[in-house]
Write a protein that binds this DNA or RNA. Sequence first.
RNA 1: GGCGACGUAGCCAAGUGGCAAGGCAGAGGUCUGCAAAACCUCCAUCCCGAGUUCGAUUCUCGGCGUCGCCUCCA
Length: 462
Amino acid sequence: MAPPIRLYNTLGRSKQEFKPLQPGQVSIYTCGPTVYRYAHVGNLRTYLFADLLVRTLDYNGYQVRQVKNITDVGHLTDDTFDRGEDKMLVSARLEKKSPAEIAAHYTHAFLDDEARLGIRRADAFPRATEYVPRMVELVALLLEKGHAYESGGNVYYDISSFPDYGRLSRNTTAKLLAGTKGEPDHRKRSPLDFSLWKRGDKRLQVWDSPWGPGFPGWHIECSAMSMALLGERFDIHTGGADNVFPHHEAEIAQSEGVTGHRVVNHWVHGQLLFLSGTRMAKSAGNFFRITELEEQGHDPLAFRYLALQAKYRAPLNFSPDGLAGAGRALVQLRERVADWRSGPEGPTGDFGDRFLAAINDDLDLPAAMALVSELVRSDRAPGSKAALLLDWDRVLGLDLARGGPEPGELPIGADNLLTQRQKARAAKDYATADRLRAELASLGVQVTDTSEGQTWRTAPRG
RNA sequence: GGCGACGUAGCCAAGUGGCAAGGCAGAGGUCUGCAAAACCUCCAUCCCGAGUUCGAUUCUCGGCGUCGCCUCCA
C-alpha cells in the first residue's frame, strides 16, 4: 500500500495530498523556456524538478501526461509605453536570422540539454506561435466577460474585475499599488493591469486580430496552451519560483476569468540555482551551460546527482567543487551496482517502503539519496542491493546501469611500459616498477595493483 | 516601500521540541612491497539576544546578515 503523495502547493503554502482529477491519471503543465538563448543549468534545475515529479508519479503507477510549452514569441522587457525590447527579435537582429530560425536553433539545443540530464521527453511541446489564434479567442472572451478593456489599440486585463488577483503570490493590489514606481502608462486604468494584446505592425512577428495587427501579451500563451491541451481543469502546473509573480498570478486571472472556475489544482514551484550567492541568470552572465560542464570533463548526470541532494523548494548553491564531488559519488555508485549485479539475492527489508515514503513526501529526494547511502553500506545481499538501486533509478535517473568508466585507449608506448612493469614486479624490482608507474601516469595511464596483477585505466579527460 | 525565503561542520545540504541525515573534502586505522581502491573509525552544542518549556537548532518576539519576486527571466 503506497503512502499518499503529498505535494507542496504554492496556492495555500502547504503540503497537500495529491488527488488526481481522473483516477490513475495526472495532467501536468510545465512552464517551458523562451527560446531566444541557450538554457543554463539554473533553467535546467527547474525542468529537472518537474521530471522528478513526473517520474515519481509514474513510479506510483499513474499515467502521466506532461505538456511543456516552447515560447517562441518574445516578450517585452518593459511593458510601459511599448518601450521594451523583444528578446526574440533582439536575438534575431544580433544573429542576423529570422525569429523562426532562432527559435528552431535554441529549441533543439534545449531538447538536447534536457536529454543530457536524463529529463524525460514531455508528451507535447506546444509552440506559442501555433496558438496565437487561440490566444486571440481568449482575449476576446475576456473582453466579453468584462475582465479586459481596449485602450489605445492595446488590450489590458482589468485586475479590479478579478478579486482573487494576488492570492497566489500573496500580494494585495493595494500594497502593490503603493510600491508602484516609474511613470504610469495612461492607457491603463490601473498601473497593475497587464497587457493581453499589444498593437504593432513594424515587427518581424505580427498577427492579425480584431484589434488590428499586433502580438500577444506575455502571460496569455500559457493560459491558451495549457487549456487547449489539458482542458479547463488539470492537475498540476509547475514552474520556477520566479514565475509566481507576475506570470502565474496573471495566468490564473486569465484562465479563471475565461472559465469562471478553478483551472489548476496544484501549483508547484522549484527554487532557483545560485552561483556565489546570487541567482544564476542569463542577464547577469553568471551561468554555465550543461555542455560547458561536460567539456570541462563532468558527467552531465553529476549535475543531476548534485541537484538530487537538495530539496527542490530550497535554493541551491552551485559550485564546481560540489559538482566534482557529486561526480565522484556517482561513479562510485555505478561501479558498485556493476559489481553487485550478479551477486546473491536476499531480503531487503523496509528499504523499498522507505524510498517510496521519501519521494511521496513532496519529492524528498535528499532523504531518498541518504537512503541510497544507507542501503549501499548495509549488509544486505549484493544482488538485491543492485536490483533495488536499479529500480530506484527509475526515479533518480542517474543511469546506474551504465557501470564503471571504460578503460579507455592506451597511448602509444604505454603497452610496452606496462609489460616492463609487470616483469619488474614479478622480479620484485619495486624501484623500477614505481618508476614505470610514474612514467605511465605522466602519459595519462593510471596503474593499479590488485591481487590478480596490475590493471590500468586512462585518466579522465586529457 | 510591499510580498516571500533563508542563515546548520572546510564546501554542498537534510532534519527534529528530547542525545544533529547524506555527499565531497580532511584525519587515523586495516589491507597493500609501496601507492590507489575498498573497508572501519573520527570530524558541528545548528547567526545573535530574550521568551515559552522539565528540555529549543527546532516554537514566539526582537536584532544582525544574505537572497528572491515586485520589468522579461526556470
